[in-house]
Simulated assay, not measured.
Amino acid sequence: MSRWVLCVICAICIAANAEEGDVEFDYRRAPAWPYSLQKSGVSGWVLLDLKAHHDGRVSEPEVLESSHPLMSRAVVNIVPTWRVKPWAVSDERPAVVSLRHEHYFLHPREGTNPVTWLHRSLRHLTCTRFNNRLEDFQQNSSGLEEIDMSVFRHTFKVLARVATYRKLSDEQRFALGDALAVAAPEVIQRCGANPELRYKDVLPDEVKRML
């Protein structure tokens, strides 16, 4: 599943196919950070599906995963105000397309790059928390594979960034993505059986070294 590495390098907003990938946001105001979370210094993220319409409208936000329900609510409330660049409807470009978008709420103390924050978070993530996220994902994200869950998705993002920093070849990048994808079922099994461990401890050695 090397395509995951390529996807996280290319974009955070992912369309369903190549033609729909031409959809661009024209206006996207950031959601209000829930005051209680901002005051407490809580960073987080929300992954959602939404519909983009040929006339520029954006609708039907559906949260797939989120680090906090208040963040989910903030994003869902703001999505109807977003706009995409209109397009002409054709056989290749339907009137409505599905987009997947991830928004980060990043506290200033975490810096300005969400991947840097994700990197730190993954290093300290316990298997207990991993197991809780997996349970939530299985309950709320029907139709998605376990490799799509936030922890794995964020690990792919971090691997892509570190691979770029270390100037790895495309072949080396693909090998890292494959190693994580292949190991995902074992990672899930080992974290489930050993909640006292860290997520990083149960990753393949070549992936672990990158974190």
Rank of each mutant, 00 (worst) to 15 (best):
W4V: 00
L6F: 02
C13V: 07
I14A: 00
A16W: 01
A16Y: 01
N17R: 10
E19S: 12
E20S: 15
V23N: 05
V23E: 02
F25Q: 01
W33A: 07
Y35K: 13
K39C: 04
S40R: 15
L48M: 13
K51W: 03
A52Q: 06
A52S: 07
D55F: 02
L64A: 05
E65Q: 14
H68Y: 07
P69R: 06
M71S: 00
R73N: 09
A74P: 00
A74T: 02
A74W: 00
V76P: 02
V76E: 10
P80A: 06
T81R: 10
W82Y: 13
R83L: 00
R83I: 01
R83A: 08
R83H: 08
R83C: 03
V84C: 06
V84E: 01
K85N: 10
E92D: 15
P94A: 05
S98R: 14
H101F: 08
H103C: 04
L106T: 01
R109Q: 12
T112S: 12
T112I: 09
V115H: 03
L118H: 04
R120I: 00
R120D: 12
R120P: 01
L122R: 05
H124I: 05
L125G: 03
T126D: 08
T126W: 05
N131I: 07
N131M: 11
N131G: 14
E135L: 14
E135H: 14
D136K: 12
F137W: 13
Q138T: 12
Q138I: 08
N140E: 14
G143D: 11
L144W: 12
E145V: 10
E145T: 13
E146Q: 14
I147L: 15
D148G: 06
D148K: 11
M149N: 10
M149Y: 06
M149K: 08
V151Y: 02
V151A: 13
H154W: 10
H154N: 14
F156V: 06
F156L: 08
F156M: 07
F156S: 04
A160Y: 06
A163V: 05
Y165H: 11
L168H: 10
D170E: 14
E171K: 13
R173E: 05
F174V: 09
G177M: 02
D178T: 12
L180I: 05
A184I: 02
P185A: 03
V187T: 12
V187D: 00
Q189F: 08
R190H: 08
R190T: 08
G192A: 07
G192Y: 03
R198P: 00
D201V: 02
V202A: 09
L203G: 01
V207H: 07
M210H: 03
L211K: 07
L211H: 01
L211Q: 01
